[in-house]
Design a protein around this nucleic acid. Structure first.
Lengths: 149, 149
DNA sequence: ATAGTTTATGCAGGAAATGTGCATAAACAC
DNA sequence: GTGTTTATGCACATTTCCTGCATAAACTAT
């Protein structure tokens, strides 16, 4: 039997990963142990194993001995797409350079992405409707891939 | 303790639902008991409870005492509206013929539907925001009615 | 190459989500 | 009303997900 979590609250994975992301983008972190230590100070109970998996899931990479998020592909930005965020579980909001939203949206619409329920483009913003969190993740991934090449 | 499934293979839900769909579109079925019976002949082990839930998940409805998949009203399609879906509990996404979204949206906006929080029309897509699942159902129903007449 | 450090992973156990039948409530038909 | 049909609260089983432990693998510095 294990007693790993006897005194802790569960379903903290997502919050923990967000915290890790905030940490590595804010401070210079070079070892997973530091992350563990930081998280413990924040009240999380976690081991190096989980941090390792978290970093993997987040897509964090190590450059010059420091953890960091890979930056958005330049080609996407130069095409007109400047940022992508979620809003709840059923929306993706894409920001574009002024006037470029339609063009970006056409390119998305021309790619068959089954999870997309619908898209609407304004002047510099696109809304994409999807059914759930998993679809949201998948679609965001796919969209980056469209503009990466 | 239950022994419901001791001799059966699990993870048959999806296949079972596909079978149900095939059944109700092929033959005339008016009672869930008939579906249960049919499934048992096909080798599934299932009760009326599960069939009820399956029908719900599939979106099957009963018209004239027979189960069937809801189809789009012809008049709506001819007006420019070609499909309607949900995305989560707070969005309805309407697909229209190319360029028809504004026209369809105007017609919706001109109908007072109190549950609608807001609408946006693109080229061939409309987003409608609502507050909850019940409103979602009610609004979709109302919109179909607008275009049915 | 070796030793020390850091990270990844197979495994097992526990938790959460999902699927199901039973019993019965609710809805419907007459 | 009665009888039939459908929906649902509950309990239990299964599956999937999450986690720590132990340790293998990878890396670093000497």
């Amino acid at each position: 039997m294990q007693e790993m979590c006897i005194n802790t609250i569960f379903m903290q994975k997502e919050l923990r990963q967000t915290t890790i992301l905030k940490l590595i983008t804010t401070k210079s972190v070079g070892r997973q142990d530091e992350i563990v230590e930081f998280l413990e100070k924040k009240g999380f109970s976690v081991t190096q194993s989980s941090v390792s998996r978290d970093l993997d899931e987040l897509g964090v990479i190590k450059v010059n001995g420091l953890y960091s998020m890979p930056s958005k592909p330049k080609s996407a930005i130069s095409f007109g797409l400047s940022g992508m965020q979620t809003a709840g579980d059923n929306l993706i909001v894409i920001k574009c350079e002024a006037g470029m939203a339609s063009a970006v949206c056409v390119r998305i619409d021309n790619t068959p992405i089954k999870e997309i329920v619908g898209t609407i483009a304004g002047e510099d913003t696109i809304f994409i409707a999807i059914n759930d969190k998993e679809a949201q993740q998948a679609v965001m991934q796919t969209i980056w891939e469209i503009f990466e090449k």
